[in-house]
């Protein structure tokens, strides 16, 4: 069984959104994913980090921690903030639901994460923060199948 692990810690600034998704994609690239799989991971990470900045910390200063584990051809990504937390996770995960309609948010963040990854679990505690756990299996397609 081949294993690997990484941890990234950064301030909740929107300028770090692209930094975070590029780092996770670079880590995932050792599994030899297709461009589409890599793009799925980048998009899902971007959504989770954006949520932490806008909703977790409400644009205030905080720390976001990303951990990624690789076991064989499975990547497991955890994105953690210590922000305000989500009151009602079920409601927050409904497509088009947004707690901040005035900010032109589409309410599609969790739906995108669910669609682009194989699994998504959200844990949250009010006043303590939110943890988003996602997994994706990299199919290891042959060159002909790509």
């Amino acid at each position: 069984m081949d294993k690997n692990y990484m941890k990234l810690e950064f301030l909740s600034k929107s300028a770090n959104e692209s930094f975070a998704r590029v780092v996770v994609a670079a880590f995932a690239s050792q599994l030899d994913p297709t461009l589409e799989e890599l793009s799925d991971i980048k998009t899902a990470v971007s959504e989770a980090v954006t949520n932490a900045i806008i909703h977790g910390y409400e644009y205030g200063e905080g720390v976001i921690i990303i951990e990624a584990f690789i076991v064989d051809n499975l990547i497991n990504i955890t994105i953690r903030d210590s922000g305000k937390g989500i009151k009602n996770i079920e409601e927050a995960m409904e497509p088009f639901y947004t707690s901040k309609p005035d900010l032109e948010r589409s309410g599609m963040g969790f739906t995108v994460m669910e669609t682009f990854m194989d699994s998504l679990v959200v844990e949250s505690s009010e006043g303590k923060g939110t943890v988003v756990r996602m997994t994706k299996e990299i199919k290891n397609l042959s060159d002909e199948e790509r």
Binding site: S39, T43, V112
Partner: peptide
């Protein structure tokens, strides 16, 4: 080269 759901919000607006 990349767009997430923030782009959807921008277009809706």
């Amino acid at each position: 080269t990349f767009m997430d759901s923030s782009g959807v919000g921008l277009i809706m607006g």
